[in-house]
Amino acid sequence: MEYQDSSKAGFESALKLNASQLVDSLEKGDIGEAVQLINELNKTRDRGLFHEVGKLTRELHNAIVNFKLDPRLPHASEVSQIADATERLNYVVTMTEKAANRTMDLVELSSPLVTQVSTEAQTLSEDWGRFMRREMDADGFRELTRRIEQFLARTAQDGAAVSGHLNDILLAQDYQDLTGQVIKRVTQLVTEVESNLLNLMLMASRVDRFAGIEHGEISGSEKAHKEKSASHGEGPQIHADKLDDVASCQDDVDDLLSSLGF
């Protein structure tokens, strides 16, 4: 960085010095010397430009090596980090989907058991009430005890099954640990890529300075094109409570719709 600044400062001081000498020699009418000075100026500029272009090229090369993007490189058999990140994120999708399905499977297995126990308990409790009020004959009571015996046996069995399912549901949440790790690594990669790109951009801007290139602002139509059309959807809003144009909860949606006459 310091060297950068010193080379730029060197260029600028050489520019100033040669410029004043150029004016002097032109005033003196010494055209030969003036041409010499212009050549000198050009050389200084070219040296700086070559130097910056050289550095930009080196940085680009490093970036390509770091991201392993070039298929001709010797370690191309390893996937590029970006491709790897894509694969990792796909893994997250698969893992979360599997966990969600496993959880729903277990809930679907458990809920009929629980419903059955609860319905049976209700019927038994009604019959038990009849017995307590002495509205039941001996045969009815024998039948009731038989059903209670069955109910107790089944409850014990179903209870164990449901408790097993609950345990499995708990275990199915282990994806959070794995996907969390994967997402953290991908986030890290994105941050790295961003800072490397920023570096490249700074390098390129130095080349621009030496070459005298100026970039126009992005034109309005391009900007408009870049803005996503709302119809395409944006996915979940991450900081809904901090954004003004986003409904942060169902109540906000309901308010908005009722203001529209819904």
Binding site: A230, S231, G233, E234, G235, P236, Q237, A240, D245, V246, A247, S248, D252, V253, L256, L257
Partner: peptide, 8 residues
């Protein structure tokens, strides 16, 4: 999941 006012 779309929750922008414009979208609603």
């Amino acid at each position: 999941a779309e929750a922008k006012r414009d979208q609603i």
